[in-house]
């Protein structure tokens, strides 16, 4: 049995002065990346705002077609996963490799849970024919209802893709953690994926009330 606390000593890349320099550069890079993500999703929120402004009654009708219980469940799942993610980073900071693995696994279970709930929601919408215009087959009162499902699938779909990417990143982290790459002096990838993951959570925090609750 290998020593769980043995770790591979991280080598600082040649063009950085020291580990702190490397970490801070990576973190600034990550924040700037999140800036691009804010504008990326933000533009969609502007599109949402336009449609909502243009067809307020349609949105009231449409939000009843989404199940708020599913949305709320997913909100709880993502919030919990953000907590486990941050605990995974913290565990690495205090050299608890086993705990890092456990928290990362918990985060991944949450991510899968989110996607499972999403799957059932999408399946129901597809079954009823509530889809973007070219595939829309449902009966409804508002003649603009397809616009709601256009933006709904666009926004939640893009968010879902981010969750899937997050699952891939967490898998990668688990593998590196198992190899003993992370310890109190080096946990940069954990921290960066953590920031990404919280951003995914952040987007959902706005998507949930805008689609499921506000009529």
């Amino acid at each position: 049995m290998t020593d769980l606390n043995a770790h591979k000593v991280h080598e600082v890349a040649h063009h950085f002065a020291n580990a702190g320099h490397e970490f801070d550069s990576a973190k600034l890079g990550m924040w700037v990346f999140l800036v691009t993500e804010v504008l990326f999703f933000g533009a969609l929120f502007v599109a949402y705002a336009f449609l909502r402004w243009a067809y307020p009654e349609m949105f009231v009708e449409a939000h009843h077609l989404l199940d708020w219980r599913m949305g709320a469940l997913n909100t709880l799942i993502l919030i919990t996963s953000s907590f486990t993610m941050v605990m995974a980073v913290r565990s690495a900071q205090v050299n608890q490799r086993g705990k890092t693995a456990a928290y990362l696994s918990a985060t991944m279970v949450c991510a899968f849970g989110f996607m499972v709930v999403k799957f059932f929601e999408y399946a129901a919408k597809i079954h009823h024919g509530y889809l973007p215009a070219k595939f829309f087959t449902a009966h409804a009162v508002s003649e603009h209802l397809h616009l709601f499902f256009g933006i709904y699938f666009m926004m939640t779909g893009l968010h879902g893709i981010h969750v899937v990417v997050g699952i891939g990143l967490i898998l990668w982290l688990l593998r590196r953690n198992a190899k003993g790459h992370f310890y109190s002096e080096f946990y940069t990838p954990l921290e960066m994926v953590g920031l990404y993951w919280h951003f995914v959570d952040l987007v959902w925090i706005f998507l949930f009330p805008l689609f499921y609750l506000v009529g």
Binding site: W68, F136, A138, H139, V141, E143, H146
Partner: peptide, 17 residues
């Protein structure tokens, strides 16, 4: 519009309160 109008008395599918 691709939306098919609701028939009189028809209930919209997948409606949640």
């Amino acid at each position: 519009s691709p939306v098919i109008p609701l028939e009189p008395g028809e209930v919209q599918e997948g409606y949640h309160k």
